[in-house]
Design a protein around this nucleic acid. Structure first.
Length: 805
RNA sequence: GCCGGGGUGGCGGAAUUGGUAGACGCGGUGGACUUAAAAUCCACUGUCCGCUUAGGACGUGCCGGUUCGAGUCCGGCCCUCGGCACCA
């Protein structure tokens, strides 16, 4: 090749190498903020953030940078428009992915993480992305996670004052607020009465001052935003840890690793995210303001907002209290509260169903009411085949508990031998234990209205229970039940079945006949309130967030247990001890005891002296989401050793103007981060009620994948085409082609360097943007990229090279 | 089952408010340059009818509607991708 031809070639390698090193040496993309010398306060700011990656051993493939390229283009555009652009990058390095990789390759997670971060950083720099690398944060570094622990400590030291209605700095009224737990403690000391739950926890009703510290702490635990709770958790012995609901798949398996997950009661650190359910829901749509009073509304893709709304799952209805009758005497033995969204169908309630874990059928509990023998008139099918009723019920409960989380289509149940009385018509109705009722939603019990609910209908049909129609719909019934709105009838029945007048005549206070569903609901709730049998209630599907993991590679809790059994705060940072044996204790056996690896750290670490008392450190670690809940704040002030983020800088840069990342974080990261942010907002540590103003989900990169006859994926670089048939290069074996997401496990991704070196990074970047709309998924094509290369070559020849001649 | 996104050439995809459907790119065909190849450049490339030309018909998942005019608006369906799933 002659020198002349070479010169006229578009030499992307020379160009890209030159500018990469120039940008690096000059720190071209370093961003200044308040307090930095040379900072220009007159420039408007723009905070452009990417969801930071976790450093996996496989490194990045060409699908990953799609969002980074887009945010880079936007950042450069805003800089040219005169904005002070904050565009940082870091690594989410604690958590299961890094630890699983370390286990598989038998290297310490700290070593693996460091190696992987270095490799990924070079990959990102190779792509010419204009990140300010001086602001890099790594969530597994003590200088970072010390502040994660500090935020945890804020949550531990706070409670949610549900009743408080307050105005934020911009005059917006907000209901409920996180406040220092010391305030609550002071109220108790000043004579605030303990709640019923508090007294139940204590088992005593003495004055606050007369309680021991341990008793006081037991009460306060029930108010803290980070608290300990005995709850049924998702126990995954295959990973040796418990998981959040969000980390368990529909099939009842772990999102990571695909191990079976079992339900297990365990005392766990938990985040009171449910306290924020209403605000997390409202602020998806409200017009908000930043510190300067500039209005903003969350500009998020509607499907993501909808997913968050569904996840929070607000539903309005009523709590109704049914009398529970003593099986021997028929006297009122207690109350069975239920939650219903359709109080207007109370007259159609012909039986009740309670969760298998319900106290009424727990032999160890005080509320246990299952009689010694089946009531005389009990139909055979209700008995579930058992002889002794107590045995049969216990057996049923045990059997349901063993079955995994996945759904069985058939609804099953067993008669508890107990009856309840419907408050609106005084009717005696049977209480069933049923597997379609879950303990952790509503009251763990339902009133069943078979005529107007699909599940109740199926159950009533199977067990031959009464079906009474109390709503007429304009639409026809669907297979015997109708769940839509309509007009109330038979509420109460005008005439009894035999034509005689109804039992209670027309003076029934619950009468709603002829009313449309909406009015009927309101009317009957009023009546329930007047009779002291219930009230309007709102329920949420959202559960509190199980926050502890029995793993090694995570943030240790800044907590220890006092010899008297209560938790005390430990000053952060609590450094993760260097354990040689970091492996979790995994097993196939769901009954294996839970045992966090940090118990091997030795007493010099596990014991800590606080106020002269030797306390035991908390041995669990935080879940992988902890670090990503606030990294966007640390980017603003990454090297500050005094505070987690300087308020002046925070006020200048927040909120994040554009947040780009995948839709897979719609309900996990994005909900957790909003929750932490709101708690920090209440406590005065951040200036905006929401962290991310505009959210954009880039579509995923798809590609062909190839499997041999055993189903093993073959790396796409080992595949060639013969007569249009995909075959493995070495063996010539014919392969099966499938199409889907690009990923490590499908071996259908290419490292960006490989493509960049062959075609040029600018060509790669241009092609990724050219493939179609950013939000849509697009298939990678090795042919398509050539068009972009030709384009850049033409640009070079026509505009640059021609100048030289 | 419920909620949401999406169906346009051989392929990726364009078409701002209802106004020439298929921009741009890939692939394909033919040609130029070259000893040859690569690279590059030029032309053509929705389908069908028409020998060629001239021209014509059809065409945005399916059926119907509104309109002078529909990929775009309305009603009903089909397929596909994603989320949720006994939530009372």
């Amino acid at each position: 090749m002659s020198t002349k031809t070479k010169k006229s070639q578009y030499n992307f390698q020379a160009i890209e190498t030159k500018w990469r090193s120039h940008w690096e040496q000059e720190n071209t993309y370093q961003t200044l903020g308040p307090g930095n010398p040379g900072f220009d306060d007159n420039k408007p700011k723009c905070y452009i953030l990417d969801m930071f990656p976790y450093p996996s051993g496989a490194g990045l493939h060409i699908g990953h940078p799609k969002g980074y390229i887009a945010s880079d283009i936007y950042s450069r555009y805003k800089r040219m428009q005169g904005f002070n652009v904050l565009h940082p990058m870091g690594f989410d390095s604690f958590g299961l992915p890094a630890e699983q990789y370390a286990i598989e390759h038998n290297i310490h997670p700290a070593t693996v993480t460091e190696q992987n971060i270095d490799a990924m950083r070079s990959q990102l720099q190779f792509l010419g992305l204009s990140f300010d690398w001086t602001r890099e944060v790594v969530t597994s570094q003590t200088s970072y996670y010390g502040w994660t622990q500090w935020i945890f400590a804020q949550l531990f030291d706070s409670y949610f004052d549900t009743g408080e209605v307050w105005e934020d700095g911009n005059g917006r009224q907000i209901k409920g607020r996180a406040k220092p737990i010391a305030d609550l403690e002071a109220q108790f000391a000043a004579g605030r009465a303990l709640s019923a739950t508090d007294r139940q926890v204590l088992g005593t009703d003495t004055a606050w001052s007369a309680l021991t510290t341990a008793q006081q702490q037991a009460v306060l635990n029930n108010y803290r935003l980070a608290y300990q709770q005995e709850a049924v958790v998702n126990w995954c012995p295959g990973l040796g840890t418990v998981l959040a609901n969000e980390e368990v798949t529909n099939e009842g398996r772990s999102e990571r690793g695909d191990f079976p997950v079992y339900r297990k009661p365990l005392r766990q650190w938990t985040m009171r995210i449910t306290a924020y359910a209403e605000r997390l829901l409202e602020d998806l749509d409200f017009e908000l303001e930043d510190r300067n009073g500039a209005p903003f509304r969350l500009d998020w893709p509607e499907p993501i907002k909808r997913m968050q709304r569904n996840w929070i799952g607000r539903s309005e209805g009523a709590e109704v209290s049914f009398d529970v009758l003593d099986p021997q005497s028929d006297a009122v033995a207690g109350q069975l509260p239920v939650f219903t969204t359709r109080p207007d169908t109370l007259f159609g309630a012909t039986f009740m169903a309670i969760a298998p874990q319900h106290p009424l059928v727990d032999p160890a509990g005080e509320a246990y009411l299952v009689p010694n023998a089946w009531p005389e008139e009990t139909p055979e099918p209700w008995k579930g085949g058992g002889d002794s009723i107590r045995e049969a019920v216990a057996q049923y409960v045990a059997q349901v508990a063993v079955s995994t989380a996945d759904e069985t289509k058939e609804k099953t149940g067993i008669f508890s031998g107990i009856y309840a009385r419907n408050p609106v018509n005084e009717q005696k109705i049977p209480i069933f234990v049923a597997d379609y009722v879950s303990m952790d939603y509503g009251a763990g019990a339902i009133m069943a209205v078979p005529a107007h609910d699909e599940r109740d209908f199926a159950f009533a049909t199977a067990y031959n229970l009464d079906i009474i129609k109390v709503v007429t719909g304009e639409e026809g019934r669907v297979e015997g039940w109708y769940a839509g709105e309509g007009t109330a009838i038979n509420s109460p029945p005008v005439l009894k079945a035999d034509g005689s007048p109804p039992r209670r005549g027309g003076d029934n206070p619950y009468t709603i006949n002829g009313l449309a569903t909406v009015e009927a609901k309101a009317q009957i709730i009023n009546a329930l309130v007047a009779q002291g049998r219930g009230q309007a209630e709102v329920n949420y599907k959202l559960r509190d967030w199980t926050f502890a993991r029995q793993r090694y590679w995570g943030e240790p809790f800044p907590l220890a247990t006092h010899p008297d059994g209560y938790s005390v705060a430990v000053e952060p940072p609590v450094v993760l001890p260097d354990l040689e044996d970091f492996r979790p204790e995994t097993s196939d056996d769901p009954t294996q005891p839970v045992s966090p690896p940090l118990h091997r750290a030795g007493t010099e670490w596990t014991t800590v002296e606080i106020d002269g008392v030797a306390c035991q450190r908390e041995l669990n670690v935080m879940p992988q989401w902890a670090g990503s809940c606030w990294y966007y704040l640390r980017f603003i002030d990454p090297h500050n050793e005094e505070v987690f983020c300087d308020p002046a800088k925070e006020g200048y840069f927040m909120p994040v103007d554009l947040y780009i990342g995948g839709a897979e974080h719609a309900v996990l990261h994005l909900l957790y981060a909003r929750f932490w942010h709101k708690a920090l907002y209440d406590l005065g540590h951040v200036s905006t009620p929401e962290p991310f103003k505009k959210l954009f989900n880039q579509g995923m990169m798809t590609a062909d994948a190839f499997q041999d006859e055993r189903g093993v994926y073959i790396d796409i670089r080992e595949v060639e085409f013969r007569d249009g048939e995909p075959v493995e290069k070495g063996t010539g074996k014919v392969l099966r082609r499938s199409f889907g997401k690009m990923g490590k496990r499908y071996k259908n991704g290419l490292p960006p360097e490989e493509v960049g070196e062959e075609f040029g990074v600018d060509t790669l970047r241009l092609y990724e943007m050219y493939m179609g709309p950013l939000e849509a998924s697009a298939p990678w094509s090795m042919e398509g990229i050539r068009g972009m290369q030709r384009f850049l070559q033409r640009v070079w020849r026509n505009f640059v090279d021609s100048d030289r001649r």
